[in-house]
Design a protein around this nucleic acid. Structure first.
Lengths: 136, 136
DNA sequence: TTTTAATTTGCAACATTGTTGCAGATATCT
DNA sequence: AGATATCTGCAACAATGTTGCAAATTAAAA
């Protein structure tokens, strides 16, 4: 699917910034930070415009946000295999790469009585194959 | 354990800010934000001092940081039942309360071949019992 | 196609979370 | 008590995000 098709499908106006973000994100097969997206784009956009685009794309569940615990944020395409209610991502401690984990079985959590879980987010941290080999 | 005992056990200097943070966090039986801790403390500390205290306490795994996806951050005591490598927390969408989930069984994730997972972080989002009842 | 209406964009300002360097105040150790 | 290590406050800065307003762009209607 092209950026324009995606926007049309979700009844979103076709704007330069949204198209650009989607194009870059579809090309990259991993999650990207605001800065990585900005650098990959030819045309420049104000940061405000970026955040407004991210916001609507997230609301429509076209992309989603991943928060790593070093205060770094990345964004990734929510492909069909992702439902909006449970996500898992892998984060490489070494090269900082972030990948979506499409299929997984959720763990079992003992939440207090009467509590309802609506959605879940999992971050798996470790080393990717490349980084593991480079270190030896 | 008292704040002083905890600090001593981890070979940390007994400083006013560290003691204060630990005292408040031991009293609260939930995760707290920087602001919630600051308001509960009598004595005032510079924000820098706070963050430096958080940093050492996190390094020693006495407390840990929880990042919610609305850019809000909370800190919680890492009780013994928490190992440093896998954590789960519950977040109430309504009252914003955060609880640690002590015992749980991790899910199964299909990570690419050759990748190593060193630690995991899980956020379960939903409604706590109080908020669920209040809404009806 | 031209006009009108709705959206998007850029700028300025501000908020939160966090870090670094430096000097002065506290705590620890002998 | 004095020497040394550590902590604290201040100023400055960085990353991430939001809001209000006016100008530009896109979409819809005539």
């Amino acid at each position: 699917m092209t950026p324009i098709e995606i926007l049309h499908l979700h009844h979103l106006t076709r704007s330069a910034c949204r198209e650009g973000i989607l194009r870059i994100m579809l090309e990259a097969h991993q999650a990207l930070s605001e800065n990585e997206i900005k650098c990959s784009l030819q045309s420049e956009f104000d940061r405000t415009t970026f955040y407004r685009s991210f916001k609507v794309l997230i609301e429509k569940n076209i992309i989603h946000k991943i928060i790593l615990d070093n205060n770094k944020i990345k964004y990734a395409i929510s492909h069909g295999h992702f439902n909006a209610h449970s996500r898992a991502h892998f984060y490489c401690n070494h090269c900082k790469k972030v990948l979506c984990i499409p299929d997984f079985k959720m763990g079992q959590y003992q939440i207090p009585n009467g509590y309802d879980i609506l959605d879940t987010e999992v971050i798996l941290r470790g080393n990717c194959e490349q980084c593991k080999s480079n270190k030896s």
